[in-house]
Simulated assay, not measured.
Amino acid sequence: MGEHVRAGNLDIWTEQVGRGPEVLLVGGLGDTVESWQFQLDGLADRYRLIAFDNRGAGRTPMPDGPVSVEVMADDAAALLGVLGLAPVHVAGFSGGSIISQELALRHPGLVRSLVLQSTWPVMDPYLRSWARFVRRLVEFAPSERAFLEDFFLDIYTARAHNDGTVDQFIEEVLAFPHKQAPRDTQRFLDAFIDHDTTDRLPGITAPTLVLAGGLDPTARPELCRSVADRIPGARFEILEGEAHQPFQEIPETWNSRVDAFWRELAPVT
């Protein structure tokens, strides 16, 4: 059962499950702790998992003032500080992977390892154009359902669209009572469009696993690889046949892979 945790000047909605080495899960655009449900269910027998709603998403409010990746990384650091946890394994996807990069750069003592799913060092022109398209879609889609149907075309595989998985996700999102305001979605996107860690990635010292979906049309494998190439000793793997969010589409495979990575660093007791 989640709760609000006061961290700095922000009440961050946080859910903690399981026992063992601590793992911080960092979500992407508008995503809430529910986006990590397969991990909260599938890894809690081995790890203490901490998931949270970023500012402006779900049950965490969006304060007035500038929104930046640096601010959101500091939110995560403040949450870990209040919980008295350090260092922790950190796993982030999409925008959450960029927040995770910044967390490792700004607060290296808090990060035991990094798993970066569907990541990039800086948006290339194609990804930047896609992000701006989503920004417009938020405003002009005729309904929430229409927005989700269009947005999810680039997020999930054709397999997930054809077997009903995406329809199920859409119904769950539509039923979720804590909606992200369209303006907050746009402010989140704006924070990432020109954010650039290219020259700073070599400063990350935490062991890092970078995962790419082989069919991801947004955070494409070459973008993910460019992150791994810049982080000393980072591992890079392509999940063939997968798109942007394999941790939801093939959770058992994804959980097994990151579990093996964490176990290599220190055996789970």
Score class of each variant (00 low, 15 high):
1 M>K: 15
3 E>V: 13
6 R>W: 06
7 A>F: 04
7 A>R: 00
7 A>M: 05
14 T>H: 06
15 E>M: 11
19 R>F: 13
19 R>V: 15
20 G>S: 12
20 G>L: 09
20 G>E: 12
22 E>F: 00
23 V>E: 05
25 L>D: 01
28 G>M: 08
31 D>L: 09
34 E>C: 03
35 S>L: 07
35 S>I: 08
36 W>D: 04
37 Q>M: 13
39 Q>W: 03
41 D>V: 03
42 G>A: 11
44 A>P: 00
44 A>R: 15
46 R>T: 11
48 R>I: 11
51 A>P: 03
52 F>R: 07
54 N>Q: 13
56 G>K: 00
56 G>L: 01
57 A>K: 02
58 G>P: 09
59 R>G: 11
59 R>E: 12
61 P>T: 10
62 M>K: 04
64 D>A: 15
64 D>P: 11
66 P>V: 10
69 V>G: 02
70 E>Q: 10
70 E>Y: 03
71 V>S: 13
73 A>S: 09
74 D>C: 12
74 D>I: 05
77 A>E: 01
80 L>P: 00
80 L>V: 09
81 G>D: 06
82 V>S: 07
86 A>F: 03
87 P>A: 13
87 P>L: 08
89 H>A: 10
91 A>N: 06
93 F>H: 10
97 S>L: 14
100 S>L: 08
101 Q>L: 04
106 R>E: 02
107 H>M: 07
109 G>W: 12
110 L>S: 10
112 R>E: 05
116 L>Q: 01
116 L>I: 01
117 Q>I: 04
118 S>K: 04
120 W>D: 04
122 V>R: 10
122 V>M: 13
122 V>W: 01
124 D>G: 11
125 P>Y: 07
128 R>L: 13
133 F>L: 05
135 R>K: 14
137 L>R: 03
139 E>F: 12
139 E>S: 12
140 F>V: 12
144 E>L: 11
146 A>Y: 01
146 A>E: 14
149 E>K: 04
151 F>D: 10
151 F>Q: 10
156 Y>R: 06
157 T>I: 09
157 T>N: 07
159 R>L: 10
163 D>P: 02
165 T>D: 10
166 V>D: 09
168 Q>A: 13
168 Q>P: 02
172 E>K: 13
175 A>P: 03
177 P>D: 15
178 H>P: 03
183 R>H: 14
183 R>K: 15
184 D>Q: 12
185 T>R: 13
186 Q>K: 15
186 Q>G: 11
189 L>Q: 09
189 L>G: 08
189 L>K: 06
194 D>S: 15
196 D>P: 04
197 T>N: 14
199 D>Q: 14
200 R>I: 02
202 P>K: 07
202 P>E: 07
203 G>N: 10
207 P>I: 02
207 P>D: 03
209 L>W: 04
209 L>Y: 02
212 A>T: 08
217 P>R: 09
219 A>Y: 03
219 A>K: 00
219 A>C: 15
220 R>M: 11
221 P>T: 14
224 C>F: 09
224 C>W: 07
224 C>V: 06
228 A>G: 14
229 D>F: 09
229 D>W: 12
230 R>P: 03
232 P>I: 07
237 E>D: 15
238 I>C: 12
244 H>N: 12
246 P>S: 06
248 Q>T: 10
250 I>W: 02
250 I>M: 12
252 E>P: 06
253 T>C: 11
254 W>K: 02
256 S>A: 15
256 S>N: 14
261 F>Y: 10
262 W>Q: 05
266 A>D: 14
